[in-house]
Amino acid sequence: MFFYISKLLWFFTAPSNLLVMLVILGGVLLRTRFARLARWLALGGGIVLFAIGILPVSSLLLPLENRFPPPAADMPPPDGIIVLGGGIDSVVSTARDHAAMTDAGERQLEGAALALRYPNAKLVFTGGPNPFWAGGKSEAHYAVAQWASLGIAPERVIAESASLNTYENAILTHGLVEPKPGERWLLVTSAFHMPRAIGIFRKAGFPVEAYPVDYRTEGSLSHLRPMREVSDGLRRFDLAMREWVGLAGYYFTGKTDALFPGP
């Protein structure tokens, strides 16, 4: 239920969606007695929409991405590698019967690279089907197939194929692999998503080490550089706001024990 409520609320509160709805509302009200308000809604919504898309407000992603530094190149071999879903579009993959990666596909590629670098480490993929696409196969199904094409034997992969969100990723993966005290497990996910993911895994009793990938910002330059495309700026801003809202939501519902988990 938490999954469906969160998706529904985010659709109506995502900044770009909300601003577009304000502009549309302004247009609808123009020929009513609220015409003055309508003009303000349409004009204000349009200006803010453009400003968010062009100005470097997407740098809100920066503190999320910088929260957990990548591990040292000469780190000791891990006992296990966990790759979070999100790097595969299960709807397109099901329709085409071929693993189709999303813009977070670096999770997949880096997971495969780590698996080849550390052949003795356990390899876990956690990601279920799209619940809004009846009959669709899980992300895990296509992750295993894609990794097999890269030289990773399917029998080496521990696939968790029922989870619908990061909370379920953590709970179900913990129960599946039953990590032992002293083991080192790497968690591979997008850098902006790492604080929330680490907090959830910690709360689930699964201590993991951050292995951030899929960076979207350019470091300190993100505070200064305007966006070249409005669509890209809006996408980054929505992404940042979803994570900040998600951090608060997961904290206040008891799914993490810190508002902004850190190293």
Rank of each mutant, 00 (worst) to 15 (best):
L25T: 14
P131S: 05
T166D: 07
F237W: 05
T94K: 06
M101E: 12
N17T: 15
G80R: 13
L49M: 10
W185P: 07
A210K: 02
R242K: 14
L176N: 08
R236T: 01
M194A: 10
K122H: 10
G111P: 00
Y4G: 12
P154E: 01
V188K: 03
M21W: 14
P195Y: 04
G135H: 13
Y251N: 12
K137Q: 13
D97P: 06
L164N: 13
A153E: 11
A170P: 05
V177P: 03
D79Y: 14
E178N: 09
I152C: 02
L224I: 13
D257L: 07
V23A: 03
V124D: 00
P119Q: 12
L186F: 01
I200H: 09
A99K: 00
L25Q: 00
S16E: 11
P263M: 11
R228K: 10
T253D: 06
M1G: 14
F237L: 09
G85V: 03
L123N: 03
F192D: 00
Y142N: 01
S220H: 03
F252P: 04
L186K: 02
R242N: 15
G254M: 12
R225P: 01
A162N: 14
N66R: 12
N165D: 15
L61K: 03
E65Y: 08
F132D: 10
M194T: 11
A134R: 13
E218C: 04
A170M: 08
P195M: 08
Q146W: 10
L60R: 05
S6Q: 15
A143R: 03
W10L: 07
L123S: 05
V91I: 14
P263G: 13
G85Y: 01
E243V: 02
R156S: 03
E218P: 04
A148D: 11
P181Q: 08
Y211C: 07
